[in-house]
Every structure is written in structure tokens, then in C-alpha cells.
Design a protein around this nucleic acid. Structure first.
Length: 371
DNA sequence: AATGCGGGGCA
DNA sequence: TGCCCAGCATT
């Protein structure tokens, strides 16, 4: 029996549920033993703000190419970013490599189990440090991610917003009070699986929940209203023109983004700046006014020689929405282009972020250049 | 404490 | 279309 707290639900019924219903995920499989720190760390970094279904294929490719932290530490940043392309939040990929090198160089290739030492590593914060401690080392930890927040908020009928720093802090304190001091890895993963499969954001499956009898939100019929989420403001709109250009050899023109910031270091098609409409003129009423001229100014070739796709492309980032007009050059490009960037044959394109893949896919419908 | 940072799934 | 989601770093 795991030691139970005097308040709230007990861990044993949850652990029993997990052993019957836990998900079989690639990073959990280690012939009945705790997964290695490397596998735990890699999966947890990928899972930051990213769903299991999306992560699995990336995780498999990473461990195939780089089976251990020493191997990853020897990779180049371009190689890691290339494998990461499409996963989003690209600073995670840079920090992943920095962290691997720090573990290799400063820790002799062995991940530390100490909480402060883990949090000192790039890309590892409060949640990830605790997750590694629990899952890889089976040491006492307080593992609180978005799933656990939701479970705790419901079980304790916490009626304040959980997506604000103050609420997160309170939930974390509550979770810490009922965390057992053994079976830490199973308990952490059980909580996350419960949140992912039973205690879901909408329509939780309470009849199947091992903690139903202890759940205050269930007793009060508040499972649809708890957790309370502060509403997110509507996303501002930006838009731009993007240029998909091919030379006589059929190569595409791409440029590399600055190393930091949005889509840092990733390749993309040249575009005008992602301005808000009329922003340049400081005149919100002057909508299309100077914008079309600005688009033309950033085209690597005369914009009148390009074909504008009839459909706009919409892409949503974390904090704004981007509407793109896509321009392509039809059959042949008349002259050499002196624009900054590099030419790539279709079969040798660098790994592209999802936005650029969407642009390419739209352009290819017109160009007839099927991948 | 607030902000910047992707992408996918779902109703 | 809007809402939700397995966080961390920077300021």
C-alpha cells in the first residue's frame, strides 16, 4: 500500500486503475522497468504544449537517429531543427540540443536526479524536472501539467481560474499535499492518463473514474464548469504576401529566418513583412491603401509578372492570425533573381515548418509539381 | 505578472 | 470559426 494522505483521494485506487488502463506509449516501454532518463526527458520536452498523437512519430525518429544523449549531443543544430520541423515552439529544439550537450559535458552523460540540477538545464522547468524525477527515477515529485491541473481542480472543486499564475500555484500546492512518497512514476503517469482519457476538458467520463467517489466537482455536479478558464482575447490579424518562385531548373527560392524569435532558424518562402493592415500608415481606416504597394515592394521580381492564387491561406499562431496572399511565377522565370536566399531542388528541400509546407502545397496545386 | 512562442483536433 | 490543449524563457 502506498502511504495515503488524510485529505482528498487516495493513490491506491488510482494506481490500480493505471495498471489496468494506462496507455502503452513508446517512451514508457522498457520491459517493465522505469524508462531511461533520456527517453523520459526527450518525450517530456516534445510533449510540452503538444499532444501525444502528434509527438509519437517525432519521438520514434529521434530515438532511431539519436539513441542516447551522447549521440544527440554530437548532432548539429540544423540536424535537430530539421527533425523537429513541424512540431512547433522551435526554441524547444535549440534547448534540447543545449541540454544534451550540457548533460554530456557537465554530467558525464548522466541526467541528474536532483530537482534544482534538472531545472538548471535548458528547456527544463518546474513541470519537466518533476516529471523526470518521478518517471525516470521514481523519486518523490509533484508533477503538475495541464491534465493534472484539471483533475485537481475538479477533485477539490477549485473554482478560481487555473490558467493564471496564482491559480496554477494553488493547484500545485494542493497536488503536492496528496502526492504519495512511493510509486511516484506510476502515480504521475496515472494522473496524466486520467486527465487525458477520463477527466477530459469536455464531457468527462465520470462513471469510469477511479476517483469519482472523492471528487467534489462530481458530487456538486460542477464537472462541466470546473476548471474555470479565463477567456483568451481574440487574436489580432496580420497579413502578408508570400512568393513561391522557381528558376529554370525547377528549384525553389527559400530564405532562412533569424535564429531567434518566431520560427527561429527555419526556412521559409520570401514574403513581405507580416504587417497589420494599414499599420504602416498609422491609419486603421486606410485598409488596403498602402498595403498592396508594400507587397509589391517586397516581391523579389516584378509582382505584375506573378500569378496570385485566388484563395488566401490562413495560419494561426499562438498570439495572432496570419492571412497570406500567395504569389507564384508561372512556367518560366524570365531572369536571374538577385534576391537573398537559396535555391533548392524539390527533392532536396530543407525541413519546413508547417506554415511553409502549407504555402508550398497551395502553390503546387497550380504549378503541377507534385511532391 | 505578462508576454512570446506552433500546431492540431474538435464541436 | 472558436476553443482547447503534456510549459518554458524572457522581461
Amino acid at each position: 500500500m502506498a502511504k495515503t494522505s488524510k485529505i482528498g483521494p487516495g493513490p491506491d485506487v488510482l494506481l490500480d486503475w493505471y495498471r489496468q488502463n494506462g496507455r502503452a506509449l513508446p517512451w514508457r516501454i522498457n520491459s517493465g522497468r522505469a524508462p531511461s532518463p533520456y527517453h523520459t526527458w526527450l518525450s517530456e520536452i516534445m510533449l510540452q504544449q503538444t499532444g501525444v498523437a502528434t509527438v509519437i512519430a517525432y519521438y520514434q525518429r529521434f530515438i532511431t537517429r539519436w539513441p542516447n544523449v551522447e549521440a544527440l549531443a554530437q548532432a548539429s543544430e540544423d540536424e535537430v531543427l530539421g527533425e523537429w520541423a513541424g512540431l512547433g515552439y522551435y526554441s524547444r529544439a535549440r534547448n534540447l540540443l543545449k541540454c544534451a550537450r550540457r548533460v554530456a559535458d557537465d554530467h558525464k552523460g548522466i541526467f541528474p536526479a536532483d530537482l534544482a540540477a534538472l531545472k538548471a538545464l535548458p528547456g527544463i522547468g518546474e513541470y519537466t524536472a518533476n516529471a523526470i524525477r518521478a518517471i525516470a527515477f521514481d523519486l518523490p515529485a509533484n508533477v503538475v501539467d495541464g491534465n493534472v491541473e484539471r483533475v485537481m481542480a475538479r477533485v477539490f472543486a477549485y473554482d478560481q481560474p487555473v490558467n493564471l499564475p496564482a491559480g496554477k500555484k494553488e493547484i500545485q500546492a494542493i497536488a503536492g499535499r496528496i502526492a504519495p512518497d512511493e510509486y511516484s512514476g506510476d502515480y504521475a503517469q496515472a494522473l496524466m492518463d486520467l486527465g487525458a482519457t477520463i477527466c477530459t476538458p469536455r464531457k468527462p467520463q465520470c462513471p469510469l473514474c477511479p476517483w469519482r467517489d472523492a471528487c467534489r466537482a462530481y458530487a456538486l455536479s460542477l464537472t462541466e464548469t470546473i476548471p474555470v478558464m479565463r477567456k483568451r482575447p481574440k487574436l489580432p490579424l496580420r497579413h502578408a504576401a508570400v512568393f513561391v518562385l522557381r528558376d529554370e531548373a525547377g528549384r525553389y527560392l527559400l530564405r532562412q529566418r533569424p535564429a531567434s524569435g518566431l520560427l527561429g532558424g527555419m526556412w521559409e518562402f520570401p514574403s513581405s513583412p507580416w504587417d497589420k493592415k494599414g499599420d504602416k500608415k498609422g491609419d486603421k481606416n486606410n485598409l488596403a491603401g498602402g498595403f498592396a504597394e508594400d507587397q509589391a515592394a517586397y516581391a523579389p521580381v516584378p509582382i505584375s509578372s506573378l500569378y496570385k492564387l485566388p484563395r488566401k491561406l490562413v495560419h494561426v499562431f499562438t498570439h495572432f492570425r496570419l492571412d497570406l496572399d500567395i504569389y507564384v511565377n508561372l512556367p518560366s522565370l524570365p531572369t536571374e533573381i538577385s534576391a537573398k536566399g537559396s535555391w533548392f531542388y524539390p527533392a532536396a528541400l530543407p525541413a519546413l515548418p508547417t506554415l511553409s509546407k502549407k504555402v508550398l502545397n497551395e502553390a503546387r496545386k497550380i504549378l503541377g509539381d507534385t511532391p
